[in-house]
Design a protein around this nucleic acid. Sequence first.
DNA 1: GATTGAAGTATTGTTCAACAATCCAACGAG
DNA 2: CTCGTTGGATTGTTGAACAATACTTCAATC
Lengths: 235, 235
Amino acid sequence: MTATDDRIGRPNRRLLPPLPSQAERVAELLREAVIDGDHPPGGRLSEERLCEELGVSRNTLREAFRLLVRERLVVHQMHRGVFVTLPTAEDVRDLFAARRSLELPAVQRAADPAPEALEAVGRAVEEGGAARDTGDWWGVGTANMHFHQALAGLSGSARIDEFMSRILAETRLVFHVMDAPREFHAPYLDWNRRIHTLLVSGDRTAAASELETYLDTSEEQLITAFLAREAPGPA
Amino acid sequence: MTATDDRIGRPNRRLLPPLPSQAERVAELLREAVIDGDHPPGGRLSEERLCEELGVSRNTLREAFRLLVRERLVVHQMHRGVFVTLPTAEDVRDLFAARRSLELPAVQRAADPAPEALEAVGRAVEEGGAARDTGDWWGVGTANMHFHQALAGLSGSARIDEFMSRILAETRLVFHVMDAPREFHAPYLDWNRRIHTLLVSGDRTAAASELETYLDTSEEQLITAFLAREAPGPA
DNA sequence: GATTGAAGTATTGTTCAACAATCCAACGAG
DNA sequence: CTCGTTGGATTGTTGAACAATACTTCAATC
């Protein structure tokens, strides 16, 4: 109680980027690894192995785990360990319900279109096209994520942005449980471009309508693939 | 690799409530304490003191801290410690932007009203009235939170619910930095009742319109109070 | 007097090692 | 084949130690 005045500094906040702690760096690493599919959904993340692999102590690793649990990328079971989240069909439904709530109103009632936010939408469209031309299908998926992230960004709320980011990361996990992430995103590229065109032309209602159809179609496709995968049981 | 098959059990998930770990229990305690205002916004949470107070080790406490940081209830500064979040006017704007994105569409496009969700709205209204009659002004605020939580619940997404819960917890912090949480919520009680009435009558558009005005008014009131507090500086 | 710089101190960041608690697999009895 | 028991492996939690950093203090200088 003597070394500090116990009060947060009001002025100089966010001047220089607060260098991340070890735990946050580890969490970032694991997050990318999980999203990229380096660890299969449902697989266990061994403390002992990851400690050694990442060169950090168990305590630090566990701090990182807590962060990922809160992002729903991994689940934690007492005395069993942490596992890469294995999304269910119900999760898919919930994820799309959340996306509808976030994306549709963002598109429909973007009162002042927020030039930079709209520009981000356009950039994502271009990114998708470039990735397709290269044959980088995983990149196409990434661009698609960026597109929808940009749509949610029209809301103009940093918290919404962050939430959307997590929703999309989870969605990405869904694609990993299906074995066909190849040309899965391809047909959606043109759809994205159409939505963007409608947006810049100012027809928000039409854009929202297109987006809604998009979401319905995508969800149904995923659910179908999911149920087909759950029923026969590959084991 | 021998004691477990490294795969998460597909069936029996969520059968019995997974008893919370120590870190989660500590986080829950601290969360409530922060929301209830036991620790003033901007105040530091000393590791050493809390360790002793809660009877847990530093490592466990730090795990709990990570959870609260991710919920934005506390901020973490390297080598300085964790502080109860001191919201800024900008935070208030962002919080209300997020609430607009969540609550308005939930009210407006609640296609099938979801009977139990709508019932929760009614219960929050009653709860608020009861708290006012008792003179429990903090309880009135709690009921108000429940009301808006229930509105967001009309979306029917568990993830939206959880996100809304965090948004409201943060909003609660905002009220702590102002010294007048007494009859601040009182005028909003009737507003809530009116919105609920419109909802059960099926006039979603009118309900959304009322809600929008509500949010605009509330935000402006908070921002005004905030700027008045920041300008003169009580120190 | 105000600013700068250099100790010294307090607090956090991270690791390590130990033990308790629990789960899992394998085994054996009925 | 089913059901307990046992043993091994993994996680849950603690405590202490040391390194790294920020804050305070105080003296020196302009």
